[in-house]
Design a protein around this nucleic acid. Structure first.
Lengths: 155, 155
DNA sequence: TTTAGTACGTTATAATGTATCAATTGTGCT
DNA sequence: AGCACAATTGATACATTATAACGTACTAAA
């Protein structure tokens, strides 16, 4: 993410927080910025380390968790269940728009590609889904594999 | 799972282990049996507790992890990433047959419904999937939600 | 100015998972 | 039977991930 988009995204993120009647504090901004400028998901502890390295200040891991759950609650951050790590999105991304997301996670370089999936696609995908009367609340799917770049390198 | 199916499944499980040149030890059998006779997923620590309760013997958590990864490697057990818990299947299940599975996990009763999904269904589901050149190694998807029974109860 | 809510600090603890090395068990071989 | 070997397990320590509980500071509204 380039500098201009980053600034724009951070500004929009602030708006989002204010719309929720919440604050966009320095720590929240820093954590979000770290996630936005890193191309791999980070754990809460990795975020705390990064924070120290980048800002000459520091933040407790406890606070990182609180900040992450706040950012998740306003849809600026997602947690990857298969990695126990966190990832952020621009406010123009499908993720932010609350659509269902498909995360393609590369086992080699750890990078994550994000695709949008519609409700109807999910229904198509799982033909027997409706039969069992299950009401889904899932907003994301995760797939592990190898990205195109790493495939090329490995070939 | 009734007693007869349980016995049959455990016998087949033994065959599976032998075919892999591995043993079906007492501990592995007990752990598998606990998982097969429980209708909710269990964590490694819960399994160690159950083991103690059921067998008057005990097993270290370390061993439980080893046993679980062994059972996973021969496709008798699956780990649910969204819960950090484990679940077992009969050797007649789609899971065991190494198809792609969709796990529907109920937030209220914790029960898991398992559906089989074909590769082509996955391809249909994610239309842009091929575009990015990602090679998937994923054999399962997980959805959180509310099962039909719990919906009825809550209504 | 009191009060309520939000945010963060601090400490402790729970829950989950891995590394390492020694001891044991079982199996095949002689 | 006795031995060698690999697989399995025990035991301990440690690492990682996450939540609980409680206190303090700040802000904004009543």
């Amino acid at each position: 993410m380039n500098k201009q988009r980053l600034t724009s995204t951070l500004n929009k993120a602030k708006q989002v927080c204010l719309e929720h009647g919440r604050k966009f504090t320095v720590q929240r901004k820093q954590i979000l910025q770290i996630l936005l400028t890193t191309d791999v998901p980070l754990s809460a502890y990795e975020l705390a380390s990064c924070y120290k390295l980048r800002t000459s200040s520091s933040v407790s891991v406890m606070s990182v968790y609180r900040i992450l759950s706040f950012l998740e609650s306003v849809n600026l951050v997602r947690r990857l269940n298969s990695a126990n790590k966190y990832i952020a999105y621009g406010t123009d991304s499908e993720v932010f728009k609350r659509e269902i997301s498909l995360f393609l996670i590369c086992r080699h370089c750890q990078k994550v590609e994000t695709l949008a999936v519609s409700q109807s696609d999910v229904a198509k995908l799982f033909p027997h889904f409706a039969d069992v009367g299950f009401t889904s609340q899932t907003k994301q799917f995760e797939m592990m594999g190898v990205c195109s770049e790493c495939q090329a390198k490995l070939a």
